[in-house]
């Protein structure tokens, strides 16, 4: 696992991927920070985080699109799958690589908190709670996108599909208001990522929300292992 994690991070930073992703992430978060904190004379990062939700949905497929699709295409997966590493190790290595990359992007929020502290006392508890939520949300989105990448050989397909899924997840709350059938409404509400995420952004740390994101992550990592296993048998 360590070897794969190291290689993943190495490949992010030896190519333009890491820098482009970070630049876009910092640009938008800076934009939101400027608009919702400086321009509106507030010390609350809540709106910055809730708006970042959409950016995260688009940036994560870019981070993960390579993970398995590229390996399959250039046949380097043969080296991974014939090495004495279990599939779980391989998937975890890939996941953690992408997650660390994402966590580095999120570290910018700490800088914003420090910037706020020059003007007024920031609400550290709220900020750290939101940061945790952002990391958990990112973790589950990365797991979903790693799974998508394991299903295809084309990076473009993986990225587009991942963004589509991200968009669908973002619009879940909107669908809830459109549909009249009660049970579908309930189901959609229960799986709407935004619902769970918003609790974090206003500083509510609830066990349910944490468990929700952790289980989505675990579920899709499990699916990824199964997808790789299936490829071996077909």
């Amino acid at each position: 696992m360590g070897a794969i994690l190291k290689r993943e991070l190495g490949s992010f930073f030896s190519s333009a991927t890491a820098y482009v992703v970070m630049a876009v992430f910092f640009f938008f978060s800076g934009l939101f920070f400027n608009a919702y904190v400086f321009a509106s004379n507030s010390t609350s990062l809540t709106y910055v985080f809730s708006n970042m939700f959409y950016i995260i949905m688009f940036i994560i497929p870019i981070i993960t699109m390579k993970s398995f699709a590229e390996e399959k295409k250039q046949k380097s997966d043969q080296a991974l799958l014939t090495s004495p590493c279990s599939l779980t190790e391989i998937v975890l290595g890939k996941f953690l690589g992408a997650f660390i990359m994402y966590a580095l992007c999120c570290a910018i929020f700490l800088v914003y908190a420090v910037v706020i502290s020059f003007f007024a006392a920031p609400q550290w508890s709220v900020i750290l709670c939101t940061l945790l939520g952002t990391l958990l949300l990112g973790g589950s989105m990365i797991a979903i996108n790693v799974f998508i990448s394991a299903m295809t050989e084309s990076q473009v397909v993986a990225a587009v599909l991942g963004m589509g899924v991200g968009l669908l997840i973002s619009m879940m709350s909107y669908f809830v208001s459109l549909i009249d059938v009660e049970w579908i409404k309930t189901v959609l509400e229960k799986i709407s990522f935004l619902n769970y995420y918003q609790n974090f952004t206003i500083g509510i740390l609830s066990f349910t929300d944490v468990i929700f994101f952790l289980s989505v992550t675990a579920l899709f990592l499990f699916f990824t292992v199964r997808a790789l296993e299936k490829r071996r048998w077909s």
Binding site: G2, A3, G10, S11, S14, Q74, S76, S83, P84
Partner: peptide, 27 residues
């Protein structure tokens, strides 16, 4: 030790880095 028909290489790595990676991967 397996050498597939298409060698499983990572084009973005240097030869030594790649061999170090494979060394770790193969434990």
């Amino acid at each position: 030790g397996y050498l597939p028909e298409i060698p499983p290489l990572y084009p973005d790595m240097t030869v030594r880095k790649y061999l170090e990676f494979m060394f770790d991967l193969k434990k």
